[in-house]
């Protein structure tokens, strides 16, 4: 990774905006390290919450490449969660293939196969039109999964069996598996995919995506292939969604159409706003906060959706930069003070 080089140059001359960009990698690594240490002191219950967080964080890193970096807000991104989830279900319970590595490869392939034609149609449009088209595709996918009872099990869904990790089978209960080997496996994936995303957003490719977000017409006159870049971003984000979906399905043990219902896509948007779409670390912070918040509020009141809605309104009105924006602001103030 190029981190030391970046920090060196930021320490010399770069102002706050650039410094906070570079600090995204460090924030990510700190969270990952904290998660790696968590099993040594946290309760089993907390650990069972963390695996869905890893899955959602991966999906959201992809989502934010599209939303935060390219400026395309997808309202149907849960479609990719379902592609990963159903890939895992078909592989384990229909085909009897339990290797998680193979499940991941199939999820990636299936995501690409779906993302290319869907993206091809959607990325020609921007703003609300892109949002509505992706929403429509998400709903279409939902009804396909719901209606094709013979293949997908309809509203019953399909069971997702415990996979083999690196060909190894793990004994013991489901919780022990999820909070033990699978916990670290998923964390490893999050780490690898996070670092990969860091490279993507810091590449000339990532720069072109940001130019498109800022001003697509101007970008095209600077030689940016707007449509092709948007499609590439869509496919990459779809792959991240597929991988996240496969992990999520293993933790739930079931793939059902609910995973692609539009409210789930809405949750992804909520998490992105919660974490702050302008920052690299936003998706990770957002999904962690969402999982914790949802768990906390749900245990207190059945009106948890009301509370989540209120939180969203407060954030949009008072902290459009999301939690990572608040943290970044505090950090800058602290540095200036010291």
């Amino acid at each position: 990774m190029s981190a030391p080089h970046i920090v060196e140059s930021t320490a010399l001359a770069r102002p706050a905006a650039e410094a906070s960009r570079a600090s995204g990698l460090w924030a990510f690594l700190v969270i990952v390290a904290a998660m790696a240490a968590l099993p040594f002191f946290a309760s089993t219950y907390t650990l069972t919450l963390m695996v869905p967080f890893f899955a959602l964080a991966i999906a959201l890193l992809g989502f934010n490449l599209l939303f935060g970096y390219t400026g395309l807000l997808s309202f149907g991104h849960a479609m990719f969660l379902s592609i990963g989830a159903y890939s895992a279900a078909v592989m384990t319970s229909k085909l009897g293939i339990l290797s998680f590595e193979l499940i991941l490869l199939v999820s990636i392939a299936a995501s690409v196969i779906i993302a290319v034609p869907v993206g091809f149609l959607c990325v020609r449009y921007t703003r609300i039109f892109f949002g509505m088209l992706t929403l429509a595709f998400g709903m279409l996918f939902h009804s396909v999964l719901y209606k094709f009872y013979g293949i997908t099990g309809g509203d019953q869904g399909m069971r997702v069996l415990r996979p083999l990790l690196f060909g190894m089978e793990f004994e013991g209960g489901k919780t022990a598996f999820l909070t033990g080997p699978f916990y670290y496996y998923a964390l490893g994936l999050l780490t690898a995919l996070g670092l990969l995303m860091w490279r993507i957003v810091r590449s000339p490719f990532g720069l072109h995506l940001q130019a498109i977000r800022e001003n697509a017409q101007k970008a095209s006159y600077l030689g940016v292939e707007v449509t092709r870049m948007r499609l590439s971003a869509y496919v990459i984000s779809g792959v991240y969604g597929g991988i996240g979906g496969a992990i999520l399905a293993i933790t739930i043990g079931l793939a059902d159409p609910e995973i692609v219902y539009w409210t789930q896509s809405g949750n992804l948007v909520f998490m992105a706003v919660l974490g702050g779409s302008g920052a690299f670390i936003g998706p990770v912070v957002g999904s962690l906060a969402f999982v914790l918040l949802q768990d906390m509020v749900m245990s207190v009141t059945q009106y948890w959706r009301f509370v989540m809605g209120a939180v969203l309104i407060l954030l949009v009105v008072f902290f459009p930069g999301g939690l990572s924006g608040i943290a970044g602001g505090l950090f800058t103030r602290f540095k200036r003070g010291s």
């Binding site: 190029s2 490279r199 993507i200 810091r202 590449s203 490719f205 990532g206 072109h208 940016v224």
Partner: peptide
């Protein structure tokens, strides 16, 4: 921009 992993 052909390779999304190239360092800027």
């Amino acid at each position: 921009t052909g390779n999304p992993l190239r360092s800027l």
